[in-house]
């Protein structure tokens, strides 16, 4: 019932033309866009008035008893029920009321270079920030300082007499350092290294001829060879009988490669060897 009432009120029965308290004629329901049909006899949707009040809404009607006008008390103007004062009445505008956002617009013509500059700066700083984020993240995967501090080992060479081996530990592996005598150097250099299993000249394996620095891990299965042993006066692996010569090259037995040479350098000032 209530829905029916509401629809009834909404559909019709506003006075089509009235006068506002400010004295301005007000016709909110008049459809000014509707035109009279081109052919007055034609049927169509566009009539002169499409909002004629329906019969159930009251108004004058011709009955058998004569012309009767009926008005329902529930009919009332549905919009402006209360009195409006001049100061509060809305201004009637010709154009539809659209909010104005022109203050929001950056002038694209005069500020074109500036706008591009701003967009470009945003790109520059974002790219810079992204680059440092990525590089910092990658750096976090690098070895930490305590690992790096142990990654280098210093050896005082002045304590190693000629013709002696020294074994030190570096990154958990033994490193052989041999102070070679002159005859050993000549022996290592005179051999016909091109015929060896892993051909490598003695000059390629040492930085200074009297100092031989190698990783003490047999290239066969990782045992630690014994110094000053074997058929060639170098190293001998007790596990499977590989023989290395005085330059650490594999000469006999199952070892496929020469003993590995780590990265090292000499510091001239205080006769020190830095491995790593």
């Amino acid at each position: 019932m209530a829905t029916f009432q509401a629809v009834k009120k909404a559909v019709a029965l506003n006075p089509t033309v009235r006068t506002l308290p400010s004295g301005i004629p007000f016709a909110p329901l008049l459809n000014a866009a509707v035109r009279a049909p081109h052919d007055p006899h034609a049927h169509g949707e566009s009539g002169p008035r499409s909002d004629v009040a329906p019969r159930w809404a009251g108004g004058p009607s011709l009955r058998s008893s004569g012309l009767v006008t009926k008005t329902y008390t529930s009919v009332s103007p549905s919009v402006n029920v209360q009195q409006r004062f001049i100061s509060t009445s809305a201004v009637r505008k010709d154009a539809p009321d659209v909010p104005d956002f022109s203050h929001y617009r950056t002038n694209p013509e005069s500020n074109r270079a500036l706008s591009y500059f701003m967009v470009g700066s945003l790109g520059v700083i974002s790219a810079s920030a992204a680059k440092s984020s990525v590089s910092e993240f990658l750096q976090s995967m690098a070895a930490s300082a305590d690992v790096l501090a142990l990654a280098k080992v210093e050896v005082d060479l002045s304590t190693i007499p000629e013709g002696k081996n020294v074994i030190i530990k570096w990154r958990g592996k033994p490193v052989f350092i041999r102070h070679r005598t002159q005859s050993e150097i000549e022996e290592a250099r005179s051999s016909d290294w091109k015929t060896f299993r892993d051909p490598q000249s003695d000059e390629d394996r040492v930085k200074k001829p009297e100092w031989l620095v190698m990783l003490g891990v047999c290239t066969h299965l990782g045992c630690v060879p014994i110094g000053e042993a074997g058929d060639y006066g170098g190293w001998f692996c007790p596990c499977h009988g590989s023989h290395y010569d005085i330059s650490g090259r594999a000469r006999k037995g199952p070892a496929p490669l020469n003993l590995e040479v780590p990265q090292y350098e000499f510091s001239e000032v205080d006769e020190k060897l830095v491995i790593g």
Partner: peptide, 22 residues
């Protein structure tokens, strides 16, 4: 035409009509 009426006015008219009809 109906769209020119605001929703608030619509509701007001409906409830006013309902109570009045009561």
């Amino acid at each position: 035409m109906l769209s020119r009426l605001s929703a608030g006015a619509f509701k007001k008219a409906a409830s006013a009509g309902a109570s009045r009809s009561a």
